[in-house]
Design a binder for these strands. Structure first.
Length: 887
RNA sequence: GCCCGGAUGGUGGAAUGGUAGACACGCAGGACUUAAAAUCCUGUGGCCAUAACGGCUGUGGGGGUUCAAGUCCCCCUCCGGGUACCA
């Protein structure tokens, strides 16, 4: 009998579909539940590539295993289908994005089904479905109607917000302003990239490194537009501490920590000569105030214009304008050569009342801290660079902890920057009474901060890099905001019962001239009038793609619910997600954004857990072989010939080097899973994806490697499908030992997501069984169950051939029996001074003394001792013997 | 620059501080076949060596800890990913 994978796989896929084998159980009384989630894909026109099934296979194995362990498993799939490509295709061809999206989803669904993944397809969701995004809009309304209570560190309904009396007095408008200033969703000016030639807003990804638009090559500019923003920064601290107890890779936690970027320091107020206002800076080193010899404010800083003196105005204005035209990259490129101009104005250093010049420079960013810094060139490398270039004074205030006298001298003279610890010098002033000389960094920070607070000149402050989230896009293909802007300036949101607000049909998907979303062209949709005849205009921005993916895991719990976002009882049962697997590219943004929404929903009592994802795992990227010539030119894979393990250019015959690179269209090294399944079958694809190496590392795809697992599956089928190899009766002890070792190994490996070694254990067992020639009926049943999570089609087929009529999906996972694993003897490796020389078979029950005497009595030991007496013999029971000889 | 990973045969990889190279690919030889494919069997880190044995060496480089290091510590090199002046 041959391994006809095509027939087998088609047959079982049909069986599973017809029997709804993977339908999520409705019974919510089973205390064992497991919610296994994949990062759902964006259904691109190119279809699935082999990177997708890597994570999907891992979660599928885990889900199938958990079902056999008696868990209620929720394992759903859906589509994150809003996005730019469908919209751009619409601009080019006029095809409505919903049509493109539907086609792409159909392709993805077909491809995924052909992999035999055990999703509950009744729960399929699509972020572009109005029945879905109705609730995305609903969540936006909740965000809009929530404020963050700093004392409680918690989001609360706007209805709970107390309006201060002094604001109430100012009237309705001021009250509304006050409330708006606290909402988690707010409407404000924000900068976007704008291509003046295409008259379109560009995403960051569309702007090339040289500041040009990737589509037309023209230079993009920054443009201010009214945008929706979300106040994620309020949640910085909770986002930082929230994952401490979650089972996430440390690397991902680190990346999120860095992204949130908590730093402690102080805000310090500097007076400004000749002006009434104050210049506030944030610093992590208030202890270095005595070393502050100048100040820098960001070009975009509110005070720039006010501070600048008439004599310097031209220069400063020119500089500010030049900065605004620079792309972020230009700004960082020039990092090596700092730029800036003097404002003509001086600030007063609060510790000694000395005037220091205020400069404008683009190395200070408006979005972080207060947008202004005090510069301490002696102890900050950036300030040092700047001071050197513009000949500003450098005053060393810390005696450096260095032994090199030359270096010490350079530092003390201000010719080298010192950023480490040391005792303070030059850090006292009799007029203000502060003195930290002689202290070290930690004590210095404390003393100065206390002094500043006492004198009301500043305060201890925690700062975060995390900035508010720009939450609108000037696009058609996204969730419309349920928002109306009225002619009198009022903004209102739609009522819950008015949702979903659907997208209008359009003739053209091009944006408006001013940078407005294409929705501005939908006249009928756009204009509204209320019952009193007041005219209004709908919000024309749409939500970013993140919106749909921020909460999809919640909708899977109750996808068909038309009454509410989901049923509370079901949510309480299924949440949190027990295992979440996806690419590391979402390590920061998606995970941070969805955690933020989840925390708001938690604060509002809508969800029952503070964090959504209990265990997170990131699969590594799958790369592919690519080829390059001696000069490093990349050659498409279809122009490469292989001869005797070497690679040649098919056109000019030159030898090429095989390298490993990301799959890309231009290298023609993209592997399509359809090609693999048609040649080797879905089980082989699944197995190979898992056999390639550990799930979390990047690894190259090698078509040749698929053969290995294909051979294994073929051998498995031929062995177990042949009734001559199966007998009834007692199993051979060696097989029994191998089988129970296998169960234990595979079980442990699935629990720890180490799928590659589980497969090799199955191969080892099959090799043993084939060597023995026969296995018992019981063994065959057990083996098919162990194989089932990995290669479900083949496992079902063998299970059926063994006489079972029902699917083995819910068969209990076999229990391993330690008794069978026990050994009578152990072959001790014997080493001399750590080098293994021979091995000796001894009973596992042997005592240390017995082992030592048996080893030393061995003639080979006599030879290695060479007449010397061992100074020590290390015996690790059932592991190793090491004889130590001192020379 | 900074942060996070990583480096093991021709290749993908395995190895709770305890026999390095499991398992597989590839390759070589053999069986079957008119032949090929498929399948099955044997061998396969390198070097030396044998009738058979056996020995030396070996996890990017250099130090260290240990009875024992691919694994732990320090320094260096190279590769991959992330990030961009965060005060």
């Amino acid at each position: 009998m041959d391994y006809n994978f095509q027939q087998i796989e088609k047959k079982w896929q049909k069986y599973w579909e017809n029997n709804k084998t993977f339908k999520t159980p409705d019974d919510l009384t089973n205390p064992k539940k497991c919610y296994v989630l994949d990062m759902f894909p964006y259904p691109s026109g190119a279809g699935l590539h082999v990177g997708h099934p890597e994570g999907y296979t891992a979660t599928d194995i885990y889900s199938r295993y958990k079902r056999m362990k008696g868990f209620n498993v929720l394992h759903p799939m859906g589509w994150d289908a809003f996005g730019l490509p469908a919209e751009q295709y619409a601009i080019q061809t006029g095809t409505h994005p919903s049509i493109t999206t539907r086609n792409n989803c159909d392709t993805f669904r077909r491809q995924i089904k052909e992999l035999g993944l055990s999703y509950d397809w009744d729960r399929e969701i699509n972020t572009t479905d109005p029945k879905y995004f109705r609730w995305t809009q609903w969540i936006f309304i909740q965000l809009y109607n929530t404020w963050f209570d700093n004392t409680l560190q918690k989001g609360r309904p706007i209805s709970d917000l107390e309006i201060p009396e002094n604001i109430k007095k100012l009237g309705k408008n001021e009250v509304a302003k006050y409330v708006d200033s606290l909402r988690l969703a707010y409407y404000d000016n924000a900068q976007v990239w704008w291509c003046p030639s295409c008259r379109i807003v560009c995403a960051n990804e569309e702007v090339l490194n040289d500041g040009s638009h990737e589509k037309c090559g023209n230079r993009v500019e920054k443009k201010n537009l009214r945008q929706w923003m979300l106040r994620i920064h309020h949640y910085a601290e909770r986002l930082l501490t929230g994952f401490e107890n979650l089972d996430w890779p440390e690397g991902i936690k680190d990346m999120q920590r860095n992204w949130i970027g908590r730093s402690t320091g102080a805000e310090v107020d500097f007076g400004i000569q000749g002006l009434d206002s104050k210049l506030t800076v944030f610093t992590t080193r208030p202890d270095t105030l005595f070393g502050a010899t100048y100040m820098v404010i960001a070009p975009e800083h509110k005070l720039t214009e006010i501070i600048t003196t008439d004599a310097c105005r031209d220069e400063v204005e020119k500089y500010v304008k030049a900065t605004s035209l620079k792309s972020d990259l230009d700004r960082t490129d020039l990092a090596k050569d700092k730029t800036g101009v003097f404002t003509g104005r001086y600030a007063i250093n609060p510790v000694n009342n000395k005037p220091i010049p205020i400069w404008v420079a683009d190395y200070v960013l408006t979005g972080y801290g207060t947008g202004a810094i005090m510069a301490v060139p002696a102890h900050d490398t950036r300030d040092f660079e700047f001071a050197k270039k513009f000949n500003l004074p450098i005053l060393c205030i810390q005696d450096p902890d260095v032994t090199d006298n030359d270096q010490k001298k350079r530092i003390l003279e201000g010719n080298e920057c010192w950023t480490e610890d040391g005792k303070y010098i030059n850090s006292s002033d009799t007029s203000t009474g502060i003195d930290i000389n002689g202290l070290n960094k930690e004590a210095g920070i404390k003393k100065i901060t206390d002094w500043l607070e006492k004198k009301n000149l500043g305060k201890a402050k925690v700062n975060y890099k995390l900035r508010d989230w720009l939450f609108s896009r000037q696009r058609y293909w996204g969730e419309p905001f349920p928002v109306i802007h009225w002619e009198d300036g009022e903004i209102t949101l739609l009522e819950e019962k008015e949702l979903p607000l659907q997208l209008p049909e359009l003739e053209k998907y091009l944006p408006g001239e001013s940078g407005e979303s294409p929705l501005a062209n939908a006249d009928k949709w756009l204009h509204v009038t209320d019952s009193k005849g007041r005219k209004g205009r709908r919000e024309t921005n749409t939500m970013p793609q993140w919106a749909g993916s921020c909460w999809y895991y919640l909708r899977f719990i109750d996808p068909g619910n038309d009454e509410m976002i989901f049923d509370k009882v079901k949510e309480k049962y299924w949440m949190p997600v027990d295992l979440y697997i996806g690419g590391a590219e979402h390590a920061v943004l998606h995970l941070l954004y969805s955690r933020f929404w989840h925390k708001v929903l938690f604060d509002l009592g809508i969800v029952s857990t503070d964090e959504p994802y209990q265990k997170l795992f990131n699969q590594g990227m799958i790369l592919a072989f690519a080829y390059e010539s001696e000069t490093g030119m990349k050659i498409p894979a279809d122009q490469v010939l292989e001869r005797d393990g070497k690679f040649y250019h098919s056109e000019n015959g030159t030898e090429l080097r095989q390298i490993v690179a990301k799959m890309s269209k231009s290298l023609k090294n993209v592997v399509n899973p359809d090609d693999v399944t048609s040649k080797y079958g879905a089980d082989s694809l699944r197995l190979y994806e898992m056999f390639m190496g550990p799930l979390d590392v990047t690894k190259p795809w090698d078509d040749k490697g698929v053969k290995g697992v294909f051979n294994f599956l073929g051998r498995t089928f031929r062995f177990f499908a042949n009734s001559e190899n199966i007998f009834t009766g007692n199993e051979d002890p060696e097989i029994l030992k191998g089988l129970h070792h296998l169960i234990k190994k595979v079980e442990g490996d699935i629990e720890n997501l180490r799928f590659n070694t589980g497969i090799s254990a199955m191969m080892i067992f099959l090799n043993l069984a084939m060597k023995k020639g026969k296995v018992s009926y019981e063994t065959a049943l057990t083996f098919s169950k162990v194989l089932a999570p990995y290669a479900p089609h083949l496992a079902e087929e063998i299970w059926q051939l063994l006489g079972n009529s029902r699917s083995l999906t819910y068969e209990p996972w076999p229990a391993f029996n330690e008794e069978y694993l026990k050994e009578d003897n152990f072959e001790y490796p014997v080493s001399f001074n750590g080098k293994t020389r021979f091995s000796i078979l001894l009973p596992v029950s042997a005592t240390k003394e017995e082992i030592i005497s048996a080893v030393l009595a061995d003639e080979r030991a006599v030879r290695w001792l060479d007449g010397k007496t061992p100074s020590n013999v290390i015996v690790v029971p059932n592991r190793i013997v090491n004889v130590v000889i001192k020379n």
